[in-house]
Design a protein around this nucleic acid. Structure first.
Lengths: 194, 194
DNA sequence: AATATAACCGACCGATTGGTTTGTGGCAAG
DNA sequence: CTTGCCACAAACCAATCGGTCGGTTATATT
């Protein structure tokens, strides 16, 4: 990787971290510059403006990370078990000492989807991708599941509930509460089976 | 109501609206002053600073509005039906023309719970109040429900899922999607019955 | 050696932010 | 009539924001 690419990557990594912690608007470019130990000129050489930097973080950091988490959970023999394991892992591994930051994509979604059309489109795209992933995984074992299941509806509900749970735990900073809600979510998912 | 009280109330109302639309940090005091047609001196006569204004909006506007929505839904003969009616009403009455703003309390929760301890405490307090409300309402008809129900867990899950659904609809701006997720939530709630 | 370009520096800019301070009209009490 | 306080108005402040721009350095090319 060339020097320039390294700088660009460092900007992306630091920005992803800062945006995750503070949200997009509250993230200051000057803080990013400090942590990267670069000048403003360097940043604006690689990115035309703040929002383009945000898009790049979304596409090059958040989306791969996001899919890298969900995909393995769904591409197992039993996606129902896979999902529950995934949710439980997330809820168990949650760190309570520091401020809980929640899912970066989910956060960005709440903050920016209504403000900026570029973010909104990217978020929508992600949501649809994830929904396809879940619903197709569930359909593969449809013979084991209840009849009359609207797979798209169920998938969106699972994602919505999981996000809602993360938000709850984020604001309450209560790991046990998070685990309880996740337990109920898993209870619901498992009830999809016959 | 005295003149002073009227100005104070107007500040609260306008601020509540602005914070609902833009979030707390993105809400500018100057915009509030314009819409209220008052000067900065007036605002700082009634409130010591921006965050105290935020607390006042939370306590005097959002909380009463919030409880005023949930309570009637739960204080009916069948709270299960009450909840489903409530959720369906919300999803049907949602306005898609303008930017969908979601639940102000939920938004504030995501934005501020990890940033400001004062907001976090107030939010936590609200969440517990709501959870008590739901779980006690469900317990009243426990004879009609399945055995082995963890009422607190179920209540938190309902709230988390509902919030997650609102967030989903907020970012997708898709009323039908919202209604589908709500339908699944109602499906889950009704399955609590024997 | 001269030139060109990529990669970056850092001073500067206008706009806006939350917040302070000084002043002032009106009304009520003495 | 005057004094004093309430309820503001309006100018002002430092800090910070995202963004611009002229200049510099290192490397590659001719």
């Amino acid at each position: 990787m060339s020097d320039a690419e390294q700088t660009r990557q460092k900007i992306l990594d630091v920005s992803a971290d800062e945006i995750h912690k503070n949200g997009f608007n509250a993230t200051s470019l000057s803080v990013i510059l400090e942590k990267c130990e670069i000048s403003k000129g360097a940043l604006y050489y690689h990115f035309t403006n703040k929002i383009e930097l945000g898009y790049a973080v979304f596409e090059e950091i958040y989306v791969p990370m996001f899919l890298g988490m969900w995909e393995p959970a769904l591409s197992v023999k039993d996606p129902i078990e896979g999902l529950c394991d995934f949710f439980n892992t997330v809820s168990n591994e949650m760190i309570c000492d520091e401020a809980v930051c929640g899912c970066p994509l989910n956060n960005l979604c709440q903050e920016m989807a209504n403000v900026d059309e570029g973010f909104r489109q990217r978020i929508l795209n992600m949501q649809e991708q994830l929904n396809d992933l879940i619903s197709s995984s569930l359909q593969k074992i449809s013979n084991q599941l209840r009849n009359n299941i609207d797979y798209s509806q169920v998938s969106y509900f699972i994602v919505a509930s999981f996000n809602g749970s993360m938000n709850l735990s984020r604001s309450s900073r209560n790991k046990e509460l998070f685990q309880k809600v996740i337990a109920e979510l898993c209870h619901y998912i498992k009830a999809l089976k016959k």
